[in-house]
Simulated assay, not measured.
Amino acid sequence: MVKERIGFIGVGLMGHGMAANIVGKGWPLTVMGHRNREPVEDLKARGASEAATPRELAEQSDIVILCVTGSPEVQGILQGPDGLAAAGKPLLVVDCSTSDPSVTMRLAAELAPAGITLIDAPLSRTPADAQAGTLDVMVGGDPDAVARARPVIDAFAGRVMHTGPTGTGHTMKLLNNFLSLGYAAIYAEALALGAKAGLTPQVFDSVIRGGRMDCGFYQTFFKWVLDRDPNAHKFAIRNGLKDMTYLASLANSVGSSNPVGAAVRNSFALAVGTGHGDDYVPMLTDAVAELNGIK
């Protein structure tokens, strides 16, 4: 069986591992580079080709996977002057970014007359899982389009959940990130309060770890808190703020109050505003401690 040609834009922290699994498992792969050449050169050494523009990549692809920051980047790649749509050919586009669901649904409707099918397949877990091919993927789209994309998604996924029509994957991703970023904000505040009251992170961990409030995210988060492992969870605080902003937009669009979401967003906004935007999410603990005059 001849495998479809795959294009991949966004070979960063998550995308590099995903693309490596795709090309390593036998799909013809074309990638588009960005500022960091190292992952592109690695993928080319594994057998991938490189395109200079989204349009050129589309001309060489049947299915295109996007793993970029958010909706503005996705829209530019799809509809820009040298974008995917400019190639003038049918494509299946799989958006693995964390995007605004309302924008995803609008883009899907706008692109459909040109023969471009857009489905959303945002990710959960870490860059290490991307390398291992064990990501969680939430897929929103028409069942036939999802079935066509599924073998490629399976190359980098451990679990794949079909959430419903296009846009529902991004909705579920925002809810997933609300939970994880909410935990991050709570951990950071609890640790700072404990430190002010004389409790060390080690004492805090001895009580929580192994108890009912322990979880996989807690354990990853505390690899930074206790071991100062900078690779524990490589997801930037400014991206957390972006996702919580998308969540606020989603809440407004459906007429739902989200007071806790607003508080979590404010925690991340304070961290970005005090110069911690490029730090990773577990480092929110340092930002909150700094605001409280402690280390």
Rank of each mutant, 00 (worst) to 15 (best):
A263I: 04
L241F: 11
V160Q: 13
L57D: 05
R55G: 05
G7C: 11
L78V: 00
D286N: 11
L174G: 03
A121D: 06
S124F: 02
N21Y: 11
G76I: 07
I63V: 15
D142P: 06
T285V: 13
S253A: 10
E290V: 05
E41S: 14
D286I: 02
G210S: 14
F156D: 04
F221G: 00
A145G: 06
T274E: 11
R159D: 01
V288S: 11
M213R: 13
A287C: 13
S253R: 12
L123I: 09
D95E: 05
T30Q: 06
P165E: 14
G70F: 08
A248T: 13
Y280P: 00
S267K: 09
P165L: 15
V68E: 04
H162I: 15
Y280C: 07
K234E: 04
D144W: 01
L57Q: 06
R148F: 10
A192G: 13
V146Y: 09
G115C: 09
G141Y: 03
G167S: 13
L118C: 02
A197G: 13
L175E: 01
V93D: 03
Q202L: 05
G133M: 14
A262D: 14
P113R: 05
G141N: 10
D136H: 08
S256P: 00
G240I: 09
T171N: 02
G17P: 00
N176L: 01
A155N: 12
G275R: 14
F156W: 07
L250R: 04
S206L: 12
D129Q: 07
D62H: 06
M105R: 15
F221E: 01
T69H: 13
A262V: 15
A128H: 02
R209F: 00
A108W: 01
E50M: 08
M32I: 15
C215F: 07
Q219H: 06
A269T: 07
S71V: 05
I116D: 02
I9Y: 11
S124T: 01
M14C: 04
I116C: 03
Y218T: 04
K25P: 04
E290Y: 05
T117Q: 07
L13P: 00
F217H: 09
T134G: 06
L57A: 12
E189I: 09
K223I: 00
A108P: 05
Q75K: 12
A155V: 12
A145N: 08
P165H: 13
T134A: 10
L181E: 03
G198C: 10
H16G: 07
M32G: 14
S71M: 01
G169V: 04
A190L: 11
V68R: 03
A51P: 08
V94Q: 00
E189H: 08
H170P: 05
S97F: 02
R37T: 11
N176Y: 00
P54R: 14
L91E: 00
S49I: 06
L284F: 10
A20W: 04
F222V: 01
V103E: 08
V31S: 09
L179E: 07
P81S: 13
P151T: 12
V40C: 09
M172C: 10
L29N: 03
V254M: 15
I63D: 03
D136P: 00
L181R: 01
A121R: 00
V260R: 02
R35F: 11
T171K: 04
A195Q: 09
G80I: 03
Y280W: 09
M244E: 06
